[in-house]
């Protein structure tokens, strides 16, 4: 095509330019939303971390450079918070994934009324953190809880430094198990029937089929579920706020990073340090996800 032809309307260069502008116009609404609500707050965090904020928004902040990042990295509160976050994830994710997997395998049977069980198993996914917190409060309360009524005396998890974090992780795991169940059920349903049939013909037992065929073929889904679970557990907030709050000894043990950020913002009004914690949480989430991809993905079998 000649240069002259390409410059006239309908020519390829003109059309490419026009299509380029059109493409830009079409992505602009999404771009504005992402820019306003994702990218701007993300980069603003880095700026906020450099300023010591006055406790009230009408008063000026002071530039302190990287001092707040240094303070955070050297603070016992931050290290405790990271430790709590890691323990929280280590309880929530395996419990959620294994629970979801067991239920998915059980619900994958062709039995009468199995749909009812599927609905029950997946119901926790539609329960909000507030609902989950209230459900567990009603069950666990040492004064008025159901377990108490049954004669099972439990320690008060809202003031027990030993049981506070595991109890909160249990609530999160209960919430996550529904999502894990749905993901893993979808994974199970997508497994090729002919492989299962062939293994049955070859005389493989149910256990062998599960262990040697189902799990390897399901491993990409389990891996995905694990990644989602880690991100879910790192963002758990509502149940801790409702069941524990910001006061009490249990609080110091359930002070996971996301809750520490909230506390810094709303109790201490320390936006600068809260921004530093947010960046730390971002880095930790990124690193954990990268590690998961590097280490665990090697053990995942993708069907081709």
């Amino acid at each position: 095509m000649s240069a002259r032809a390409s410059l006239v309307p309908g020519g390829s260069v003109f059309r490419r330019r026009r299509d380029g502008w059109l493409g830009l116009a079409l992505v602009l609404p999404a771009l504005i939303i992402f820019a306003g609500f994702t990218y701007y707050p993300f980069f603003k965090n880095f700026q906020m971390g450099l300023f010591k904020a006055a406790p009230f928004p009408n008063l000026p902040s002071r530039y302190v450079g990287t001092a707040q990042f240094t303070t955070m990295l050297g603070s016992a509160d931050f290290l405790d918070s990271v430790k709590s976050t890691v323990i929280y994830a280590l309880i929530t994710v395996p419990l959620g994934v294994i629970g979801g997997l067991v239920m998915a395998v059980l619900a994958h049977q062709k039995l009468r009324g199995i749909r009812i069980f599927r609905t029950i198993f997946s119901s926790s996914v539609v329960s909000s953190a507030a609902v989950a917190a209230v459900v567990f409060q009603v069950i666990l309360s040492p004064q008025t809880g159901y377990l108490q009524a049954l004669g099972i005396h439990l320690p008060d998890i809202t003031s027990s430094p030993t049981w506070g974090l595991p109890a909160m992780a249990l609530v999160s795991a209960w919430q996550f198990v529904g999502l894990a169940f749905i993901i893993l059920t979808a994974g199970l349903q997508s497994l090729p029937d002919e492989i299962m049939e062939a293994s049955r013909v070859d005389g493989a037992t149910a256990w062998t089929r599960l262990w040697r065929i189902t799990f390897p073929l399901l491993s990409p889904t389990i891996f995905f579920c694990g990644v989602v679970g880690v991100i879910f557990s790192l963002q758990s907030f509502g149940q801790i706020d409702i069941m524990i709050g910001t006061s009490g000894a249990t609080y110091t043990h359930t002070n996971v990073l996301i809750y520490a950020i909230y506390r810094l913002l709303h109790v201490s009004q320390n936006t600068g340090l809260a921004a530093c914690y947010s960046i730390a949480l971002f880095v930790i989430t990124l690193l954990v996800t990268l590690i998961q991809f590097r280490l665990l993905e090697k053990r995942v079998h993708y069907a081709h």
Partner: peptide, 13 residues
């Protein structure tokens, strides 16, 4: 020793 905060049953235990 009851809790200062929490739900009605917790805060007024």
């Amino acid at each position: 020793a009851s809790s200062l905060t929490g739900s009605l049953t917790q805060a007024y235990a």
